[in-house]
Design a protein around this nucleic acid. Sequence first.
DNA 1: GCCGTTTTCGGCCCGACTGTTTTCAGTCG
Length: 623
Amino acid sequence: MSTEEKNSNKEIAELLRKVSAAYVLKGEKENRFRIIAYEKAADAVEHLSRELRDVWQDGKLYKVPGIGPGIGSSLEEYFKTGESRHFNEILKGIPESVFTLMKVPGIGPKRAFRLVMEFGLTEKETVVDDLLNVGRANKISSLEGFGQKSQDDIIEGLEVYQKRDRLVERMPLPYALDLSEEVIKYLKEMTKVKRADALGSLRRRVATIGDVDIAVVADDRDSKEIVAHFLKYPGLRSVEGAGDAKASILAAGNIRIDLRVQNQKSYGSMLEYFTGSKEHNIRLREYALKKGYSLSEYGIKKVKNVIPAQAGIQKKNGSPTVPDGRQVRVGDDKQIIEFKDEESLYSFLGLQYIPPEIREGTNEIDFAKVNQIPHPVELENIKGDFHTHSSYDLQPSHDMGLNSYSELVEKAKSLKYEYIGFSDHNPKKSNLSDEEIVTIMKKRKEYIDKTLSSSDIHYFIGLEVDILPSGELALPEKAFDYVDYLIVSLHSSFTMNNAEMTNRVLKALSYPKVKIFGHPTARLLGKREGVELDWDKIFSFAKDRHIALEINSAPPRLDLPDTLVREAKEAGVKFIINTDAHKVDHMDFMQYGVSVARRGWLTKNEVINTKPFKEIKNWLNKT
DNA sequence: GCCGTTTTCGGCCCGACTGTTTTCAGTCG
């Protein structure tokens, strides 16, 4: 994960943050908004779903929000020549070791610069150790503006950094959800806990989770007791910090868990605020400010002339209801308006309710203003699963499943599905002749049809076929007669360049009966980055040929990633949400794929396996 | 330095905590 290739988005975001920090050092006051601008640009680059360099080459650099003429021209120069004179000028005189120290908790740009300069710690490789030595020799506390406590905190921060350096992995969503449910269950052992929710990235169902945020509703007077209970959580490894109404601990695996206790009256604002994302909150506050409201985790304050939103506004706390469109002088009314749920908060601001999954600060607020937030697909809409692996032995190229076709069918029935598709891996090509493979496939079809002849659920016979490096399929075409559909996916040779990989995939998608592109980026969360593809080409091909992009629900995959899902949706592509189950229990993973779809703004209309059996048959026959 | 169904100029999110402080600076989420 620590790849910092030249011109990667990660590297560029880091560069922009360095420039931002440099402006802090040059003068935080006069550069205040420039600093924010660079930070915003860095965020935007970091969250981009494709390489900024490619965006630049497509001539769309200035379409990236946060990149304007100033930063943009510097970046162009950087792409062309490998450096930017402007960035160099700003960064001049700031040793690299300063930026290393800034990664230590509790050390920001100013302290980092000060410490590096005071003690001459210009070696980037050793600066953490060097500063630790200086601190242990009791030399920091005598600096002006530092004291004993500062020195202790810095030493502690350095030690944490050293330990945590290699452990900053984020965990896949499903594991974090399990952990949060366990903690919530533990908290609810106390009857004074009226309600507990997992917030933050967990509630937004982000594919990987850094730390677990949990909020609790309780009376104010009970909060201390609840915090104390939390600090006795059996999975606790250490206490990071604890106050009256909040605390954070490290659980096994160095997972940070934050707890906050709040009363019911203002819980809506709390939920919104700690659900985030940070970008969503900033945009929501900017939007509120334009309407004359200041937003915080406690509620809303009026700050100036108020033009209320169109939809009738009900003021809480006895404030007068303001008729539509009338401008009202509120003066210095500092009263805070509280919201017990999020619906009333968004509605107060004249916004449609925004589901947590899409609160990412893209353009959800613009959509909510005009009531255009689509109704997201739900788990209950799913009518079948097309990616399941059975224990039928067709000498497959990869892992077999653990359960029989009949058992998969039973599970599908228990999930109230209308249909199920079987997609074992293709027979291993290197061990078998084409004729042998055809025979195996024929026998398999006969076996399935015989075994399930009296089944009261519809089934489809499919196969998951490897895309060979050449783009050919690892299945002879004569065997296609024995399947209803094919899933094609990448299982090897992941490191081709973009153009080669794109051609490879397009060729694979051109074969008859190919209806699904399985786990399209082939990423493995925390282990392997996704492949490079020209997504525009893939999307338009898939759309024209009625090929569905898979959203693979398996916890380590969650692939296609949500940002690409949204782009594909805008390109008119259809999707299918599958589990890639290798045993019946895995079929319960469907909820995670649905979360990815929701984060990609999908409604059920764009998800093929929400359609009834008849439509599925039509789709399978479309070419 | 960026940005605009209230602006091409005049704005730019909000609050907590902590420490070294006589009113604030730095860091964090």
